[in-house]
């Protein structure tokens, strides 16, 4: 007989010690990105061959800069979660999995901050 109350199960906390949070954030970021990606993809398409002044002026516009920062946050959070699931699926050796997960986290954070920093630098200069 188990001493556990059904509350732990109701909270979604089983052997994984985590419930739906990972799944939920991946969906939340994807919903946010539907309009943002459409906006960004078509904006970049129109900007595609632009020179530096034109492209920088576009990124520096407050509306574009803020939306780009939101997109960067959602994008890197989303791709971090996605890559995490893929690593968990295909890397079976415990320590290699652990190392890969941590490395992926670091690399994703570095690139995410790099993107945000670049946008801020362009917008504020």
């Amino acid at each position: 007989m188990s001493e556990r109350t059904p509350l732990a199960r109701a909270r979604g906390l089983g052997a994984a010690h985590g419930g739906t949070h990972h799944w939920w954030i991946q969906r939340a970021t994807s919903v946010v990105m539907v309009p943002l990606v459409l906006w960004f993809a078509f904006s970049l398409a129109a900007l595609g061959p632009a020179d530096h002044a034109t492209a920088a002026a576009w990124v520096a516009h407050p509306v574009n800069a803020v939306l780009a920062l939101v997109l960067i946050a959602a994008m890197f959070h989303h791709l971090h979660l996605g890559l995490e699931v893929i690593i968990e699926d295909y890397v079976h050796s415990r320590w290699v999995k652990f190392a890969t997960l941590i490395l992926q986290k670091f690399v994703t954070i570095i690139f995410g901050f790099g993107a945000a920093f670049a946008v801020l630098k362009i917008a504020l200069s």
Binding site: H52, A55, A56, V59, F111, G114, A115, F117, A118, V119, K121, I122, S125
Partner: peptide, 9 residues
């Protein structure tokens, strides 16, 4: 994309 943004910066 990050490289492109940094190039722009």
């Amino acid at each position: 994309l990050v490289w492109w943004l940094i190039a722009l910066a």
